[in-house]
Computed example of a mutant assay.
Amino acid sequence: MNSTRLNSEEFLSQEYTQLACFGFVHLKNVLSMAALSEVRYALDCAFSDASSGRTNSLLEHGGASDHPGAIQEMNHLLKILPTLKRSPLLAECNDLVDRILSRPTMPSFDHAIYKQPRSGSVHWHQDQAYKDKVKKMQSVHVWIPLQDTVPSMGCMQYVPSSHRLGNLRHQRSANGHTLYAKLDGRACEGAVQVTANLGDVILHLPQTLHSSLPNNSDEIRKAWIVHFSPYGYWEPLLPQNLFWCVQKKIRLLSLALARRLVDRESDN
């Protein structure tokens, strides 16, 4: 769980070991400031356009009496903003993941989260829960802070080695956009808060339990998150995932048919 600063172009065996053991790894000062500034400007413009109603791609959740600020989110920005595909920042992150996994990867999903001042926490969850068409995601998820992010600003927190728990049950929040894991207090024991500065990244696995703290500051906490997979956007079309989806649909249809038969018998 120690933070790591990279100084080699070779396969990053130590970082791979940390990621495999703990489910996340914090890498310090690995991104260029110019690349970060370029992406932050592009995302600021995208969120400004969405907030003003010029696009309909903005999701908002959160907002409560104790934390009235909204948590704003935009998905699939690599598809919305062509400039992001060509950004040096994307290439730098892609290179990091390739070196850690020792194999080529491609983006498979991305989103940005802007936590407004006085906004609440993002609840504990596994990213795997959002991917119902993939039996087991094979991606690595890169969390990129667009400013220094301390606990009071809503930093990330992780449960070490929680990726070994398997797929946990999740429920959909009242807003309909987000999922959260059903946990008892013991499941989050030993959670680690990660203060990530501009230029840092945090990598985590799809089944790693993570959340973020409330943003109690007067600034917007900005982050871009990119998933990198050996199969990119094609991962849901792998044979094992297609077969798994068919099996799941058959189970659901069987359950629905069984309920109908029970209802008919009770009517009679």
Score class of each variant (00 low, 15 high):
N2W: 02
T4Y: 14
T4G: 02
N7V: 06
N7F: 06
S8K: 09
E10N: 11
F11W: 12
T17F: 08
Q18G: 03
L19H: 10
G23E: 08
H26L: 02
L27T: 00
V30S: 04
V30F: 10
L31H: 01
S32Y: 04
M33R: 05
E38P: 02
V39L: 06
Y41S: 08
Y41G: 02
L43P: 06
F47N: 09
A50Q: 10
S51Y: 04
S51V: 02
R54K: 13
N56G: 07
N56S: 11
S57W: 14
L59C: 06
E60S: 13
G63S: 08
A64V: 01
D66Y: 07
A70W: 11
A70G: 01
I71N: 11
Q72H: 06
H76C: 02
K79R: 08
T83E: 15
K85G: 00
K85W: 05
K85M: 03
R86Q: 14
P88D: 07
P88V: 06
P88R: 13
C93Y: 14
N94S: 14
N94L: 14
N94H: 13
L96Q: 10
V97L: 07
D98L: 00
I100W: 11
P104G: 11
T105K: 14
S108V: 11
H111N: 13
Q116Y: 06
S119D: 02
S121M: 06
S121D: 05
H123V: 00
Y130P: 04
V134T: 12
K136R: 10
K136W: 11
M137V: 09
H141Q: 14
V142P: 01
Q147T: 02
D148T: 03
V150I: 12
P151C: 05
P151G: 02
S152K: 11
M153K: 09
G154E: 11
C155G: 07
Q157M: 10
V159R: 12
P160Y: 13
S161Q: 13
H163P: 03
H163K: 14
N167I: 15
H170F: 12
H170G: 11
Q171F: 11
S173R: 13
S173Y: 07
N175M: 01
N175D: 15
G176N: 10
G176H: 12
H177F: 15
H177P: 00
T178I: 00
L179V: 01
Y180F: 12
Y180K: 00
Y180C: 00
A181M: 00
A181W: 05
L183P: 01
L183K: 01
G185D: 02
R186P: 00
A187F: 00
A187Q: 05
G190N: 02
V192P: 00
V194G: 03
V194W: 13
A196F: 11
H204K: 05
H204P: 03
H210D: 05
L213G: 00
N216H: 10
S217E: 09
E219M: 09
E219Q: 15
E219G: 01
R221V: 05
K222I: 01
A223M: 03
H227T: 08
H227N: 08
W234I: 06
E235L: 12
P236S: 09
P236T: 11
L237E: 14
L238G: 13
N241P: 03
N241A: 15
F243H: 14
K248H: 12
K248V: 12
K248T: 15
K248S: 13
R251E: 10
A256T: 08
A258P: 00
L261K: 09
V262R: 14
R264C: 04
S266V: 09
